[in-house]
Design a protein around this nucleic acid. Sequence first.
RNA 1: GGGCGGUUAGCUCAGCUGGUCAGAGCGCCUGCCUUACAAGCAGGAGGUCGCUGGUUCGAGCCCAGCACCGCCCACCA
Length: 904
Amino acid sequence: MSEPFESRTRYDPAEAEPRILAAWLESGLFHPEPAGTPAENYSIAIPPPNVTGVLHMGHALNGSIQDTLIRYHRMLGRRTKWILGTDHAGIATQTQVERQLVAEGSGREELGRAAFVERVWDWRSRYGGAIVEQYKRLGASCDYQTERFTLDDDYAAAVTKVFIALFEKGLIYRDNYLVNWDPGTRSAISDLEVAEQEVTDTLYLIAYPLAEGDGDGDGDADGEVVVATVRPETMLADTAVAVNPADPRYQHLIGREVILPLLGRRLRIIADDYVKVDFGSGALKITPGHDPNDFEIGRRHGLEQISVIGEDGRMTEAAGPRFAGLPVASAQAAVIAALEEDGVLRGREPLTHAVPFSHRSGRRIEPLISLQWFMRMGPLAAPAIAAVEAGRVRFHPESQGRRCLDWMESIRPWCISRQLWWGHRLPVYYCDACEETYVAAVPPARCGLCDGEVRQDDDVLDTWFSSALWPFVTLGWPEPTAELAAFYPTDVLTTARDIVFLWVARMIMMGLEFTGEAPFHDVYVHSVILAPDKRRMSKSLGNGVDPIAEIDRHGADAVRFGLLAMSSTQDVPYSAEKIAQGQALANKLFNASRFVLLRVAPDAVPAPVAAAIEDRWILSRLTRIELELARRIEAYDFSHAAHAVYDFVYRELCDWYLELVKGRLAGEGDGDGDGDGEDRLAVSQTLLHVLRETLALAHPLIPFVTEEVWTHVRRPGDGLLAGAAFPVADEALLDPRAEAGLERAIAATEAIRGWRDEVAIKPKVIVPVRLAADGYDEVAPLVARMARLRLETAGAGGPRAGGGARARAGAGAHGGVGVDGGVGGDVLVRVPVPGGIVEVLAGEGVDLRAHGERRAKRREELEAEIARAAGKLANPGFVAKAPAEVVAAQHERLAQLEAELTAL
RNA sequence: GGGCGGUUAGCUCAGCUGGUCAGAGCGCCUGCCUUACAAGCAGGAGGUCGCUGGUUCGAGCCCAGCACCGCCCACCA
């Protein structure tokens, strides 16, 4: 009713959104007081974005999904909490700050650990809040009052407690083990942070001469074994050569020795099934110190583990004086040169194979043996597997649950220590004097055995270790807080599939281990939004689309709607069209609301008043959309939910209902001349009711525009729409008869409009017709209105009271044929509509030839369809085996088609 | 090497337990500045549903094989 509606014909999100957001934040609606039980309440823990991060499309989609769920449940009256926070993101954050230091001509080593960590905190306080502000732009109704950070003191204390508990349980241990060494971050990383890439390397064939006097008794150095490798520099760490025990070429050599070129070490020839007979020469050099497979073989055969590559990416002393100190790349060249010199290089050929790369730094992984902390996962995975199998945690789609199970069932130890400074430092202390180790929250002042100094382990925990505790630590665990009691377990976890193992599986394990309950009962795994070119969005490709820029351009509702509409369970390319569709929807809703509010009496009470069939129809359709939307949201089917809202608003509400009631609102009423106050009030009440319910049901998906319009339709005492109730479908309003009637009316209207267009009748011309069709008792006037017809009664000679008054204005002025009254029974042409025909009594400029063509075409269609239906019914198999109702439906269809054909 | 998903209108995608299921948005063509919206409204054109067989009275929808495309897992130097 207020001024914007009178003047503005377009919804302006840039103007409205900040205002609405401020109102939401101020309302306190996003912050629930902890009370009630988790079963009554609804909570979601946000996947904590990296504190360094900026909002990308994945966040935007994930945020839109979570906010839709959160707002929906809040409107259902549940006490609703969306747990917000950020992740310290060890490697990512440290790298970012280090880069800054380098730019300043400094570095972390120069700063020292304490100062560096200080610097990161400083950085975080300055730039760390950016992404939270971006979530606000999206309209995310997180609990901004209780934002958490994975490195806060309380959080750190919880992490320490967990570490100690798992250590005491024997699940955390320290070991020398072959790890994925990332030369970029100069830290070990876990298997999950490694991604393989195809690389073409050179495969070198190297001859290892047989050692003398070791088997055949004649003392000759009578041969050689050729091995193949793409990493010749690692040969310096070889401790054996392996062959397949069944390989006839080598059987006689098993147990003998070869001489390692360059170093002269004697290597035993061992037999192991792992070696493939048909690959390369069938002999495999064994390097336990630098190859995962060789490491396993080495353990099986009790071989020594030699490390020739250090954590600094240079060759170690063990590589021998010629190579020690060289960077790996130069060492490779030097080794090749030396081998050639010695005449043992037997060949080289290109080999394309998969090689591990660091997800974090992009550098090629250097497998090497390192003293690290590990976590034994089997005992933790077992209860998680049971929970997923029993359906206590359900994945959507189910295939992701299967995938998660597969991973958990073959889970391996997790390397949890990282050689970084930014993170949760291990609560582990060593006494160097007596080599005692202490694992404790509070370190002993001095060693309990020898009274020596103790020092803390330098390493920090993998970021995912703390992330795994997210759903319960954010709520206050290990303290028995009110928040924990009210909101744990949470309800659903939504994410893309790339962190199902990295994060989701581990959360389930840790939740079960430390709280006895799975942290959520549903996991919704959504699409990855690809770039429009169908490749992954990436900085290096430069094909990313910035959601904030899209919000600036099209509004948050448009972006939310678009993302939800394009999402599915598989990857989807970003669709600018869907965003545009969302923007159009917001605008449509805005203008439809203007239409209502500029006409409806301010004193009208919103109430469903079924005064006419179209009222009963829209109320019935509204009820159906309410039922559908609730069903879709609860099934995590957001794409259909979005499209359902769109279709309802466009098709049913705007295209048909608003157009249908325009006349009644203008006071044409039931034709008594000067408008019908009673009917007008009824329409007003219904319109207001439908509008309010439409806003409410669309609100979880497109919160801003609905909230904006709500300010104009709300009544005294109504609060924000965000705090209003989601419409409860009133099934008493379902009205199949009204739906069938309108369905027929709409089909007839469309048929006549199509005909009009084809025979070139001017849009403004009112065409006099006689309706000779069944099923239009209640809706004939509606068809007349929408198709711009004037209904004559069969056999009558003059205009009817009902249609006459309405038709006069447009048609009379243009002098259309026969619209001056006095039309007789002469039928000009016949137009088929469902259930019969419309007899056109006269028409201005009807293109008879076009009409003829159209009729002929329709006749052809009908004949084809009749033939098909008749054919089916003539098939004895069909009649005998198909369900009776299907056969009956086919009979009815045939009858209708034939009736239409006859009428033609 | 194993597993999963996809192949439907020019483009991006819907199509539930087989029987009006051949659809939507965008794009395209035609007509309308109809007093909510011209970033709008009305109408229209456009597809042998990847290929080949099979099951069935009936198949985008089920089965088998094949061809492409994508993703995940995996220890072939």
